[in-house]
Design a protein around this nucleic acid. Structure first.
Length: 215
DNA sequence: TAGTCACG
DNA sequence: CGCA
């Protein structure tokens, strides 16, 4: 005998949260080193930076992107851009391990055929957070959102379709993948301030990868 | 309103 | 902590 009677210890397992949302526990754990190497390669070409909100305030997360489109924010608003505004260069190509992970996770959650053209990379140091918001800068909402967590624990907030709706608190651990789409595609969501800590692979940080179909 | 902060 |  080995392991707990109450928690699986032999690989990923899928928790269905609602009709269009699923939490894939530990889905990315087996590939974590490869994924982190890919993220580092992207960040070497398109450095993480704190973006400004349209009201001029600095976001607490460090952000970069890869793929055909990158999500950007400045005084002009939120939008997708084909080039990194910091360098004027196109975003780095989406590394194959990242694309494959997103496609596999989407399929496992019931969204076969997901073909992301944008991967937003957010780096959370302790204290960093993400306010409640909707992902609504994409052209159409038929494709799901695939969110991969690496490193420090995050307390994720999954709200409803209206800002005032109550949010559920979901613990996101290293390797967890959260997928939401269909009737849940426009759910408000956010991340509570990340608590201090240290992860064996990533140290004192959390990396989140968010895959979208922007166009 | 992908933000912060004051107030109860 | 929730609200404005």
């Amino acid at each position: 005998m080995s392991g707990s009677l109450f928690a699986p210890d032999d690989g990923p397992w899928i928790e269905r949260l609602s009709v269009g949302a699923a939490l894939l526990h530990g889905w990315a754990c087996a590939d974590d080193v490869r994924l982190l190497e890919a993220v580092d390669a992207v960040a070497a070409q398109a450095p993480l930076r704190a973006m400004a909100t349209p009201r001029g305030q600095s976001m607490s997360v460090g952000t970069t992107s890869c793929g055909d489109w990158g999500w950007v924010s400045d005084r002009h608003g939120y939008r997708y851009s084909a080039v990194d505004p910091e360098t004027g260069h196109p975003w780095p190509v989406m590394p194959d391990p990242l694309r494959a992970l997103a496609q596999g996770a989407a399929a496992a959650a019931g969204f076969a055929g997901f073909d992301p053209d944008a991967c937003l990379i957010n780096c959370y140091l302790p204290g960093a957070r993400m306010g409640l918001h909707q992902d609504k800068d994409e052209r159409d909402f038929s494709a799901p959102i695939v969110s991969v967590s690496l490193g420090l624990l995050a307390e994720f907030l999954l709200g409803g379709l209206r800002r005032a709706d109550k949010s559920a608190r979901i613990a996101l651990l290293h390797g967890d993948v959260l997928v939401w789409g269909g009737p849940d595609r426009l759910r408000y969501h956010g991340v509570r301030p990340v608590q201090a800590g240290s992860h064996p692979l990533l140290g004192a940080r959390r990396i989140n990868l968010t895959f979208r179909k922007a166009r």
